[in-house]
């Protein structure tokens, strides 16, 4: 049936300008994908950063952070994506954003917690000795010193959300995954190229986000902290599984 191999089909599909500009084409889907992902990461940050930093500041809840990471690892994305629209959130984008935000929370939380925990106690003592209150220590000493960790968590969470957002297509939630799902719907002989092209676009986007945020992470990390932090963040990532 097929005259060309899937890669050629994919190139042909990508080469058709209408596949880019049509309603529901690549550009539409890309916009949806980025919008959903950005909203989910933002929501995750709003929830996870204050809690993680506060737990780190108070020095409690380390086991809670690990528990949350392990639990979310066990929850299938598809379960949340299908369950949330049937709750008070209703259909459309909000349940998708919330579902993705749930998976953004563990890396954000773990890194915020580790970031504040791993600050040299002497810096904290010095701030206390200078007469800063608990909140001032958190805001003026711990927050700035934790920025590299926050950036690392942001990167991990963002890449993961962008990757997971592809699954929104299972519930017709939009995004680039929609292209893959539509391809599978067409069947292999017709849709093979489209499946491959969609997969390529999703993977490319995830890698791009990873690369861009790696640069951002480097820029916001003060020079003396760069090497030590890289090692520490990797440890934190191992501890949480960061998936």
């Amino acid at each position: 049936m097929r005259s060309e191999n899937p890669i050629q089909q994919a190139l042909t599909w990508l080469n058709d300008p209408l596949n880019w500009t049509n309603p529901g084409g690549i550009l539409d889907r890309l916009g949806e994908h980025l919008w959903i992902s950005a909203a989910a990461v933002a929501l995750g940050c709003v929830v996870a950063w204050p809690i993680g930093m506060w737990l780190g500041h108070a020095g409690r809840g380390g086991s809670l952070v690990v528990l949350i990471s392990n639990l979310t690892l066990a929850i299938p994305t598809i379960a949340l994506l299908t369950i949330l629209p049937l709750t008070f959130l209703g259909f459309g984008k909000p349940p998708v954003v919330v579902a993705l935000a749930v998976f953004a929370v563990p890396p954000l939380l773990a890194n915020a917690y580790t970031g504040v925990r791993s600050i040299d106690p002497e810096a904290r003592d010095a701030a206390r000795g200078m007469g800063l209150s608990g909140w001032q220590v958190l805001g003026r000493v711990e927050l700035p010193l934790a920025v590299p960790y926050l950036a690392a968590g942001f990167r991990t969470a963002s890449v993961q959300v962008v990757a997971t957002a592809a699954l929104a297509s299972f519930v017709n939630g939009g995004g680039l995954g929609q292209i893959i799902s539509a391809g599978f719907g067409l069947g292999i002989s017709v849709g093979g190229g489209q499946i491959l092209a969609g997969g390529f676009l999703v993977a490319l986007l995830a890698m791009l986000v990873e690369a861009v945020l790696a640069v951002v992470e480097r820029v916001v990390t003060p020079k003396p902290l760069r090497k030590a932090r890289g090692r520490a963040a990797r440890r934190a990532a191992v501890a949480t599984g960061s998936a």
């Binding site: 990757a163 592809a166 499946i195 997969g199």
Partner: peptide, 17 residues
């Protein structure tokens, strides 16, 4: 880093949908 759905998309056309 490659999204799971994309991995599936890469493999499926060759192995079978």
């Amino acid at each position: 880093t490659i999204p799971s759905l994309a991995l599936l998309a890469f493999v499926a056309p060759y192995v079978g949908t």
